[in-house]
Amino acid sequence: MVEHDALTATREAYDDAAPTYAELFRDSLRDSPLDRAILGAFAESVTASGAGEVADLGCGPGHVTAHLDELGLAAFGVDASPAMIELARQAYPGLRFEVGSMAALDIADGALGGVLSRWSIIHTPPQEVPAVLAEFHRVLAPGGHLLIGFSGSEDPTHLTQVFDHAVAPAYRWWPDHLAAMLRELGLAEVARLVREPQPTDRRQFKAIQLLARKG
C-alpha cells in the first residue's frame, strides 16, 4: 500500500537522522518568537476550553512537547520513529512519549483538549491526509483546539506540491485548501500565522500554522 510504504520509509529515515535532528532543533524555539507566540495562543485556547490533555503528534525529540508542558498543558508526545521517542524519553524523563501513527491513534474519542501537529503531515501522501485530519477531529473534545503547521504552496492551481525534504519526500499545501478540509470536518479556523521565507532559510517556502477549534 502507498501509505504503508511512505510511513515505513519516513520512519526509517527519521530513525537514521534522529541524533542529528535532535541536535539541530533542540533550541529552535529560542530563536523563533513567532512560533512561541502561536504556541502560547494555542496553550491559552486549550486552557480556556478546560478540556483534557494535549497530544504533540510527530513530536520528534520532544522539545516542543516540553515547551507545552512549561506553558502549563498536560502534554504528551507521539511519533512514528522509535529512535525519536527514545531520545525524547532520555531528554525529558518526566513526560510521556509513545510510538504511534497519526492515522490510527490509540486515543479515545473526544479525549483531548488539544492536538499539535507541527510539520508532521508533510510526509503523508496527499490522498491520505483527509483520513489523518479526521483522526485529529475524532480525538478532540468539543471545544478542543488543533494547531497544525506545514509548508505552504505558492500556487493555488496546485493544491499540493512535492519537494525534496532533507529527511524524506514531503509535500507543500495551498493553505486555503487545507483550511477548507478542516472546515468540512467541523474544525473552524480561528487564526492563521504565515511566516515569510527568510534569507537564511534552506528552502524559500512560506511556513503556515493554522489554529482551529472543534465545534
Rank of each mutant, 00 (worst) to 15 (best):
M181F: 03
P142F: 04
F150L: 06
L211N: 09
P142L: 00
L178D: 14
A170K: 05
A191N: 10
A188G: 14
F205N: 11
L140W: 11
L182I: 07
L182M: 15
P142Y: 00
W173F: 11
R183V: 01
L140G: 07
L185N: 06
H177I: 09
G152S: 10
E135M: 07
L211S: 05
R203W: 13
V167D: 13
R138D: 12
G149W: 03
E184H: 12
R172P: 14
R183L: 12
R203P: 01
L187G: 01
L140S: 03
E196K: 06
I208G: 08
I148N: 04
Y171M: 08
P197N: 05
G215I: 07
D155V: 03
F163C: 13
V190H: 07
W174S: 08
L185Y: 03
P175S: 12
D155A: 03
V190S: 09
W174D: 10
A212W: 02
D155H: 04
W173A: 05
H158V: 07
L140M: 02
P156C: 00
M181Q: 15
K206T: 12
V167R: 02
F150C: 05
L178F: 12
V139Q: 05
G152Q: 08
D176V: 08
P156H: 02
M181I: 06
V190L: 12
E189R: 12
R195P: 02
L182T: 10
V139T: 09
V162S: 15
R203L: 14
W173P: 13
E154H: 13
G186W: 00
H137T: 10
A188I: 09
A166R: 15
